[in-house]
Design a protein around this nucleic acid. Structure first.
Length: 383
RNA sequence: GGGGGUGCUCCGGAGAUGGCGAGCCGGGCCAGACUGUAAAUCUGGUGCUUUUAGCUGAGUAGGUUCGAAUCCUACCACCCCCA
């Protein structure tokens, strides 16, 4: 068994565990920074270790296949060799690009033909070749090729899409188990539950996915614009069906609040571009609430970016300075803000785990929920 | 000291040759959005008010005219040329 559960919250479905991978253990609940093109934007890998303390990073099959391409990746020894990151990777399959590049691709039973966002060239992604590609990338966890449906999504389409995703899953599973990682380490394939916001589809999908007895299972197709209540309701329903002794991964989620709710609903793994993208756009997450650092109210606020942050840069530098860096469009702004947000997201996950192990998760969560969504503003200087 | 030119929005540019101007483009500034990254991106606002509209404004002060950013006079500022 590669996944061990060490604590279970008595008042929710939250649990703490450890997932063993070929490149080391992952303590759950965990947040996984997104590094689509073989880099977490604006950060160096050394910063992902300290101060961020990332345990696993995402890559993307679609982007890495297009650039640098499979020949380079294979000669480099996979994504680990290419980047120098010696901890676990997870690669998304390109299923999200089926959604996000909706006007640049054509779907058939065979697979998806993408018109490259780089040069417009056509590329066919099938369940089989996506498995082959992810073997060459060499991530510790690879995702099944699915269609992430948009929101809103009519029932009829959601059902047809889900059924096709299921057929694709069977093809992925077969191909994956007929092949091996060229670098000799073990890889795990996670299937993905779809079904949009329809309870009967989600149930059917979760039951089908569970039948594979995969080492871990993912929930996709959420956080695409649906109300939070729908996202939570679908997650709640699906985690009741997915095996309890395997890690559950809620794809693309989310805000700090979403993550705490997801943990309560039995989710172990999260990923999201929000902490990095919003960092680059001047939005900082802290334990006290959200800071729009570009706002003029921080112009002469010389207090630390976040005195409680584990990132030395967030304790050393002032809000006024970081605002200046943003206003001046300096690269350092993106770096400091990205380090800050990822440090916070990873801190949040570790803290959740610590409280699960201590047995007071639900109380801690209730306290955090009251603070995380607040929007902070500078106190006007007294005259 | 003499001659010529130019002055309107926070800045720059375009345009405006007596009547469709509170008015174009870019920047700046002020906000907002972002959830398995086509994203250091995108959207909106940026004279005042009681906002389906009204008011005020064109370097300053006057004048001509039914009507002036536009024509005339004086002054001011800046630029160019001559001394």
């Amino acid at each position: 068994m590669q996944f061990t559960i060490h604590a279970q919250d008595p008042r929710s479905k939250a649990r703490a565990g450890i997932l063993e991978t070929a490149h080391g253990p992952i303590e759950t609940p965990i947040f996984m920074p997104v590094g689509t093109q073989g880099t977490v934007k604006a950060l160096h890998w050394s910063e992902l270790k300290d101060p961020v303390r990332a345990q696993i990073v995402l890559g993307n099959t679609y982007h890495l296949y297009l650039r640098p391409g499979l020949e380079v990746l294979q000669r480099a020894g996979g994504l680990h060799g290419f980047t120098g990151w010696d901890r676990p990777f997870l690669t998304d399959s390109g299923g999200y690009q089926v959604y996000s590049l909706g006007d640049r691709r054509k779907l058939t039973e065979e697979g998806a033909v993408f018109a490259s966002h780089i040069d417009g060239s056509k590329h066919l992604f099938t369940p089989e070749n996506v498995m082959d590609t992810q073997r060459i990338i060499g991530a510790d966890i690879v995702m099944a090729f699915d269609e992430c449906t948009p929101y809103p999504c009519e029932y009829g389409y959601a059902q047809k899409s889900m059924e096709r995703t299921h057929r694709w899953l069977a093809r992925c599973w077969k191909r994956f188990h007929e092949t091996a990682c060229p670098y000799g380490h073990e890889q795990m394939l996670f299937p993905i539950v779809q079904g949009s916001v329809y309870p009967d589809l989600r149930r059917a999908s979760a039951e089908y996915v569970a039948s594979f007895d995969a080492p871990g299972n993912a929930i996709g197709g959420l956080s695409v614009g649906e109300p939070h209540e729908d996202m939570y309701a679908m997650t709640d329903q699906v985690t009741d069906i997915l095996p309890a002794d395997r890690p559950r991964y809620l794809m693309g989620v989310g805000t700090p609040l979403n993550i705490l709710e997801g943990i309560s609903l039995g989710i172990d793994m999260f990923d999201c571009v929000l902490p990095t993208r919003n960092a680059r756009h001047g939005v900082l997450y802290t334990a006290e609430g959200i800071v729009q650092i570009k706002n003029s109210c921080w112009k002469d606020d010389f207090s630390p970016i976040d005195a409680q942050s584990l990132a030395a840069t967030s304790r050393l530098h002032s809000k006024a300075y970081l605002r200046h860096l943003f206003v001046s469009q300096e690269f350092l702004a993106l770096q400091i803000a990205s380090i800050h947000n990822l440090s916070f997201f990873l801190w949040l996950a570790r803290e959740a785990r610590a409280h699960l192990l201590a047995g007071d998760f639900s109380d801690w969560k209730a306290e955090m929920v009251g603070k995380l969504g607040r929007r902070l503003s500078a106190t006007p200087p007294s005259t």
